[in-house]
Design a protein around this nucleic acid. Structure first.
Lengths: 168, 168
DNA sequence: AGAATACGTCAGCTTTGTTGACATTCCAAG
DNA sequence: CTTGGAATGTCAACAAAGCTGACGTATTCT
């Protein structure tokens, strides 16, 4: 589309050419593979999958969250989440307790074993992220976060922003 | 781990705290969902999946590429790729021609119909990417690309860099 | 001539998503 | 106090897309 780089295009808009956008798309694809590679290796040993990792991550992040809330964060059906959650509960990694205010709800927490796995997984994932952050530097990291946030769906962005940032 | 923010930590390293890294991890997860959402909708109508999109994308990107080359870019097994490729060839979106130099190889090209679908898919994906780029600005985009590149596996990064950037 | 490479295919299995149907439990409104 | 709706759980069936292993064929390299 913008292949011809019309000479009247302002210099400041060169980063919006189709080719630049294509490189960004490919960068997302390739980077996401690296992003999941390390946890995937750990999970495979324990015969869990990415879905288990995501559940564990967000339960750790919001202890006591309800199934419904987790559902809307993860963006999957309850049947899909339930299958994952059931194995985690059976294996003693997640505790499901009946709500006190509303007894229909189940509040989810990680057990000690669950927290241990969470740490193992996120250590691996953070190691790579830390290396990437360190290599790119603080300004690049700020830009990285800005672009990712702008790429989210509106509803998703609400979830993202609602996640407590304990460092600020 | 770095929860306590030791006072002796240099200001310049604050972006490497575990909490900052966690936010980055969540940003990747949430953004990737947005990243694939638009093409996914188009693909669903035509009963194709993300795997078809990836094949189409990289065939468009490297016309005449061989099956083996595509395999190593995508990082899947030949059986998995073959299933996708077969339907694309049957449906007349991809053409497979016997190699001239080496007749064992098949060279893959998009047909006109294939190129049309590629355009439809990448237009949708680029629209979102463009909006994100525009919202974040050129410096943020540079940082975004730097962090993503640093996050890739070494082998993957070679593939990424080998992709022709027609704009430079 | 024989080994290695590139490709295709068959069969079977796994993970993770989907729909649809239906039961249970419980809160809250009438 | 009953009833409607919300939250949860479960069963069944299915699909996409990954995997392994085995095998066949054509071609090229040594």
């Amino acid at each position: 589309m913008n292949q011809g780089l019309p000479p009247q295009m302002g210099q400041s808009l060169l980063f919006l050419t189709d080719e630049q956008l294509r490189k960004g798309i490919e960068a997302m694809f390739f980077a996401y593979r690296g992003f999941t590679a390390d946890p995937d290796r750990i999970l495979a040993e324990k015969s869990y999958g990415r879905a288990h990792h995501r559940a564990i991550h967000f339960i750790n992040r919001s202890p006591g969250t309800t199934v419904n809330n987790l559902l809307s964060i993860l963006g999957v059906t309850k049947q899909s989440l339930n299958r994952v959650l059931r194995t985690l509960i059976e294996d003693g990694l997640v505790a499901s307790t009946v709500g006190t205010r509303d007894k229909r709800e189940r509040h989810l927490h990680l057990t000690d074993a669950g927290a241990a796995l969470e740490r193992e997984l996120s250590d691996a994932q953070r190691d790579r992220m830390r290396a990437a952050y360190r290599a790119a530097g603080p300004e690049a990291v700020a830009g990285f976060r800005q672009v990712l946030e702008a790429m989210m769906d509106d509803e998703t962005r609400q979830h993202y922003k609602a996640m407590k940032d304990r460092s600020e």
